[in-house]
Amino acid sequence: MLEGDFRVPGIDECLLHAMRLPGVRGAALVDWTSGLALGTVGDAAGNDHETAATETAELARMAAEHPTFTPVGTADGPDANPGKNPPVEDLVVTTRTCYHVLRFVETSFDSSVLLHLWLDRAEGNLALARLRMRELTERLVLE
């Protein structure tokens, strides 16, 4: 590393920690409004990380925007500040061989970012992955 190079715990560290989970094939931090991959690590689900990011973003947007998925009996209904409080915490997609977990990231400023984890179904532990993703996304914006 060059002298004066500026590296703080950030996107890459978050993704590398996610890769330590059992059965992880790949991880990405994605802006779900634009469909841009802000950072990627490991293998890409499907063709490539960029296509995976746009498709992940589309799925996440549907979940975040449709009133069916807003929490019940809380203040963060459809009229809550959508930038700070995504109505959905995470999404799980299960295929015959894999899990995809999409975790929305809450930032102090207005953003639309999620952490996407792609796990092998036989080796991965879905419950552990969801817990760790919560910790990782909280640390990403606090440290």
Partner: peptide, 27 residues
């Protein structure tokens, strides 16, 4: 020319937030 680093070092934003916001602004 080190405002980004200063913001993180002084605890005004986290490293992750700075990167997310910076990439958002850049693109």
């Amino acid at each position: 020319g080190a405002v980004g680093r200063y913001l993180v070092d002084s605890g005004l934003v986290s490293g992750g937030e700075l990167e997310i916001c910076h990439l958002g602004a850049l693109f």
